[in-house]
Amino acid sequence: MKPKIYILIVEDEPEVLDSIVRDITEFEEHFQVEMADTAEEADEIISEIIEGGNLIGLILCDHVLPGKNGVELLIEMQQNEKTKPTKKVLITGQAGLEETVKAVNEADLKHYIAKPWEKSELVNITRNLLTDFVIKQIKDPLPYMQVLDAEKIAEHLRANRGITDQ
């Protein structure tokens, strides 16, 4: 069976969590969306997804969380071979410069979204990062063309064919 690709959202305020999910709902046809309100719960979900043989394509993570904070979670994911390729995004109102720098350096942070965000911004970032993920990690990204950056995927497919043709 083809592995499923997950989008994981970690946010402790239910209203905000709700809004993020609503904003990226257009990706749900092709990606599984999972939510967690603490980093610890996110850990459990991550283990479940990995054990089920599936992939986490993208994590949108708040920084200020009860218990372990967002940056710590992202760094741990970066250190785990299974979740290293996951595209990591901080979506937060108040991570200081120091922590953000840490996330960039140690967790390969792909994007920092400041609250309040614009829907189009969130959707574009999600689309770009998932496209990159799919191109790198999935053998046949063709089915994702419809919802992701079709041009980029097509280009990738052409280039790949070029290589295999030779």
């Binding site: 239910p14 969590l17 709700d18 599984q32 969306v33 967690a36």
Partner: peptide
């Protein structure tokens, strides 16, 4: 109200079995 994400996940699992034709959202 806002049930916590764990509760939501549990409920969604049960509902998915019953309403299998519905989308995840």
């Amino acid at each position: 109200g806002f049930p916590d994400t764990n509760t939501l996940r549990g409920r969604a699992k049960t509902l998915k079995e019953e309403f299998s034709r519905l989308q995840n959202s």
